[in-house]
Structures are given as structure tokens and as C-alpha cells.
């Protein structure tokens, strides 16, 4: 038995080596096809849309300096005079999305002191501490909208009444609208924290009661499943 096991292992190794050599040869053939000026054989003559996990690529260098970020021109000398974000983010609380900085926490902890007035660094915002709870039809937790964090950064007139009518029940909001840049999506998903799986619970933060059950759809009510 023991002997047989060893043989098997040896056989497997042989097979592995042979297939590796064969693979190399095949790759060589492909390259040779292009080199000989004959019919060019592309290694992957397909759209890169077909690559595996295209959307799951993690940025290797998430807070790249301007000269490596892909939108600044490196032929422009001043690009190298711009501040790299990581230099500015030193000591600020981290997140795993957006700029990878928790801006609200940074402000709350006094780690950044952005001016409320263009010129006067002593002027303070008018902060309103009022939470709005918005029930959600689906099974995800209900939304709690905190005015406090928002009035730290913004004036009432930034949102009211153009984006949100300041009246209970007057604002129809859904995730499609937000994803397309309307309602909360005017800022969230662009400049304030992004709209992605990791951030769902930042808004959807009030769990449903323990006895909550999702409402049955009309189609199911009319034709109950037997």
C-alpha cells in the first residue's frame, strides 16, 4: 500500500512536469505565430470585459499621489508640487471606502478645523440635532437621518427646499434615485461617503422590530403558493 502511494505521487509529479513543459511549448507556439509574421495569434483576443472579477479589483494604491493617480498630467511640472493626499490624511480616522478617511469623525474629534466662513476662522455653524426616522418597506433596517452631522458641514438652504421638501411624508426617496445622483445621491456617492455594500448600514441603521415580517407581494396574495 505504502509503495503504491509513493508511485502515485511520483506519477502525479511526472504528469505535472509534462503538462508544465507542454504548456510552455504551447505558449511559445502562440508567440512564434506572431513573431513569424504569419497569422498573428493573440493570447487573449477578447474584450477585457470578460476577465474574471473585473469589478472586484482592489486599488493597490488607493490614495495615490497626484503624479500616479491617472488623471493628472505628469508632463505638467506643477503636478509634482501638489500635495499627496496621504500626507494630509496623517492622523485622521480611517474608513474602508471613499477617501479612506472618516471625515465626520475627524471633524467631531477636532482633528480638522474647516472654516465655516470664507475669511473668519472663528465663526461657528448653527448645528441642529434632530434625527429623522424613515421607515423602509423592504427588510433592510429603517433609515435614520441625522441633521447634526449634516448641519456641521452645510446650510439648511443647501438641501431645503430644492432637494428635500422640509415636510414629513413629502419626499419619495428610493435607492435607484440615490444611485443616479438624486436626493441623498446629490452628495452621497460623489463626495460624502459612497453608496456601496460597506456603507448601507450607515443610513439603514435602525433594525426592524424582532417580530417584523416582510409584507407579501400582491401576486403571492392572489395566488398563494401551494
Amino acid at each position: 500500500m505504502k509503495m503504491g502511494g509513493a508511485m502515485n505521487y511520483k506519477n502525479k509529479m511526472m504528469l505535472l512536469v509534462i503538462s508544465a513543459v507542454f504548456g510552455l511549448g504551447l505558449a511559445g507556439q502562440v508567440a512564434a505565430g506572431a513573431a513569424d509574421g504569419g497569422k498573428p495569434l493573440m493570447l487573449a483576443d477578447v474584450s477585457s470585459a470578460n476577465t474574471f472579477n473585473l469589478n472586484l479589483k482592489k486599488a493597490k494604491n488607493p490614495n495615490a499621489p497626484p503624479w500616479e493617480d491617472g488623471i493628472h498630467d505628469t508632463a505638467n511640472e506643477a503636478t509634482f508640487n501638489l500635495q499627496p493626499p496621504l500626507e494630509a490624511y496623517k492622523g485622521l480616522p480611517k474608513t474602508s471606502f471613499g477617501n479612506h478617511v472618516d471625515w465626520v469623525k475627524a471633524l467631531d474629534q477636532g482633528l480638522i478645523k474647516p472654516r465655516w466662513d470664507r475669511l473668519d476662522s472663528n465663526e461657528e455653524p448653527f448645528v441642529m440635532d434632530l434625527d429623522i426616522v424613515r421607515p423602509v418597506k423592504a427588510s433592510v433596517p429603517d433609515v435614520v437621518f441625522p441633521h447634526r452631522q449634516h448641519t456641521e458641514w452645510l446650510l439648511c438652504s443647501n438641501c431645503h427646499p430644492a432637494i428635500f421638501i422640509p415636510q414629513k411624508g413629502a419626499n419619495q426617496i428610493n435607492m435607484s434615485a440615490i444611485l443616479l445622483g438624486k436626493k441623498c445621491g446629490v452628495c452621497h456617492g460623489k463626495v460624502s461617503f459612497p453608496v456601496e455594500t460597506k456603507t448601507c448600514k450607515k443610513c439603514h441603521s435602525k433594525p426592524k422590530p424582532a417580530d417584523w415580517k416582510p409584507p407579501l407581494s400582491e401576486a403571492t396574495l392572489k395566488n398563494p403558493w401551494k
Binding site: 497626484p66 488623471i71 493628472h72 498630467d73 505638467n76 501638489l82 500635495q83 493626499p85 494630509a88 477617501n99 478617511v101 471625515w103 480638522i112 474647516p114 472654516r115 465655516w116 466662513d117 470664507r118 455653524p125 456641521e152 458641514w153 452645510l154 446650510l155 438652504s157 443647501n158 452628495c187 463626495v191
Partner: peptide
């Protein structure tokens, strides 16, 4: 060349309100 505006740099120095309400 097109202009590049970094929000991150400016929000360290100013609240959103300064540009988006006052200016």
C-alpha cells in the same frame, strides 16, 4: 489642460457651505 479640483484638499480647510452656499 483640464482643471482638476480636489474636494479632499478643500474640505480639510472649509465646510461644504462656504463654496456651495456662499460662493
Amino acid at each position: 489642460r483640464p482643471a482638476v479640483f480636489p474636494h479632499w484638499f478643500h474640505r480639510i480647510r472649509f465646510r461644504c457651505k462656504v463654496c456651495h452656499a456662499d460662493l
